[in-house]
Amino acid sequence: MELTDLYIALFLTFLKIGVFGFGGGYAMLPLIQREVVDVHKWISVSDFTDIVAISQTTPGPIAFNSATYIGYTAVTDMGFAQGYGVIGSAICTLAVSLPSLVIMTIVCAFFFRLKSNPWMQASLSVLKPAIIGLIASAALMLMNDHNFIDYKSWIIFGVVLLASLKKADPILLIVLSGVAGLFLYPA
């Protein structure tokens, strides 16, 4: 019974994330973090940052990656077997993609009318800048004591920020900062 409750909670949470996941990618992070870390406490903040790091180095959108990962860890952390964790991650991935399926099916039916719809343009006029704000808040929410433990963290942050502005490859940057962490933090 407990397991089904958890499955239902996971499904509803990720359904919500799918419905309000405007802007894709990083813009969905504040929503995911709020629901998964703050409200349901399925994973910790540093675990969440690790998921984002894994998403940045593996193919596929962040929304799916975090849904799959959280679905698995939330179930196995409760003490259930691996198999149930796989079902959990399938449920989360399904839930996060279900709204897209429904919406895109409707959109395909009305495609040509929607393209130049003034209502659509009107709602997007404020939503688009708002999405930039959401991405900024994603970065600000992750700038916490768990991820920035001392001055060395800030040095890594600054160097990566500069390199990224100069269009360096993000995967390379992640690998290099991992190596830097290995050397900067002695065992």
């Binding site: 990083y26 992070l29 540093s46 940052t49 690790d50 984002v52 790091a53 940045q56 688009k128 800048p129 999405i131 930039i132 991405i135 900024a136 994603a138 970065a139 992750l142 700038m143 768990h146 991820n147 920035f148 433990i149 963290s153 800030w154 890594i156 942050f157 600054g158 990566v160 920020l161 990224s164 502005l165 993000p170 940057l173 992640i174 900062s177 991992g178 190596v179 830097a180 962490g181 290995l182 900067l184 933090y185 065992a187």
Partner: peptide
């Protein structure tokens, strides 16, 4: 854990870096 201590600030930087470009294309 040591590797991820280095990676975590980098993740935040990678989220923050494209903000300027995205802001421009979103018409801010």
């Amino acid at each position: 854990e040591r590797i991820f201590k280095g990676i975590r600030p980098a993740v935040v930087a990678l989220i923050a870096a494209p903000l300027l470009g995205l802001g421009k294309s979103a018409g801010v």
